[in-house]
């Protein structure tokens, strides 16, 4: 009977679908498990607080970790104000004019440009044309440009979610456009904006390729003190250790990955937490 056959197909697909989904989960578990097993024993205070070294057992991630912090802070400093500014402009001001339309297409194109191309941009502009050299500032500016489209898109979503009635109410009381934005729209969308920021910065923290191209170093035997210092970051350090044949360095790499993942997951978790909290709080 066709009917019976259809039902059997239906059931088979239900199982296939479940298996496919579980396959993704399964890979995730294997990935996390294998890294934990390989690296967790290497995680100790010495590892976190030591500079890199030719000897795996003496090496640590202090300079890479501090480089990551520098990059995180400076990237946020550049990308957040510019990202919010651009999003506010596109959503509240320039929405309908031609320039706005062009910028919009441009942003979705930028979001699809591979990260390594941003590295070439940073190398050409910040490192060579502006003569910064391969320093923290050049890396942070490069990553800021990289995450700018992500921030703009998520900020615009958050701005869009602010109901029109709130804007009308404020305009009706004689507020200027900027007053409406500053006193109503931005506060009402702050949660959504912040969530997007954090996700974008989490992405920046994990980026390797553009920083390699910009010239981040694999071996940095000092803790960077200014934006004009040379630097390494955690993913660079991991890449460097993975590329070495000795097994001890692989263990170091796994341990550094655990640190990187912890940071990434904390940021992502915080973003999800914020999003949920915000969605619950705001009922229009």
């Amino acid at each position: 009977m066709a009917n019976k056959r259809n039902r059997r197909i239906d059931k088979a697909f239900r199982i296939t679908g479940l298996l496919a989904t579980c396959f993704g989960v399964f890979v995730l578990i294997i990935l996390l498990g294998s890294i934990l097993i390989k690296g967790v024993t290497r995680l100790n205070f010495q590892f976190l607080s030591s500079l890199p070294s030719r000897f795996a057992a003496k090496a640590g991630i202090l300079s890479a970790l501090s480089g990551t912090l520098w990059i995180f802070g400076l990237t946020a400093l550049f990308a957040i104000p510019v990202g919010i500014g651009a999003a506010v402009y596109l959503e509240e001001y320039g929405k309908k004019n031609k320039l706005g339309g062009f910028i919009e297409i441009n942003i979705s194109n930028l979001a699809g440009v591979p990260s390594i191309i941003y590295g070439l941009l940073g190398l050409g502009i910040f490192v060579h044309a502006l003569k910064f050299g391969p320093v923290i500032l050049a890396g942070a500016l490069t990553l800021a440009l990289l995450i700018l489209p992500i921030i703009i898109v998520s900020t615009r979503e958050a701005l869009k979610a602010v109901p029109k009635t709130i804007r009308e109410a404020a305009y009706g009381l004689g507020a200027t456009k900027w007053q409406v934005i500053r006193t109503q729209v931005l506060p009402a969308s702050a949660g959504g904006i912040l969530t997007g920021m954090i996700l974008a910065l989490a992405r920046a923290i994990g980026e390797t390729a553009p920083l390699i191209v910009v010239g981040a170093l694999a071996y940095v035997p000092f803790v960077p003190k200014s934006p004009f210092d040379n630097f390494s970051v955690l993913p660079m350090q991991i890449f460097n250790w993975v590329s070495r044949p000795q097994k001890e360095f692989t263990v170091n790499a796994a341990a550094a990955i655990i640190v990187l993942l912890v940071i990434t997951f904390i940021l992502n978790g915080f973003a999800v937490f914020l999003r949920n909290k915000w969605q619950q709080k705001v009922k229009w």
Partner: peptide, 23 residues
Amino acid sequence: LKPVLEILAAIPTVVYGFFALMV
């Protein structure tokens, strides 16, 4: 399941590289 799948997208690519090479 969905959020767990989304975690896959949040993992830095250098970690996947390690996973491909070592596992």
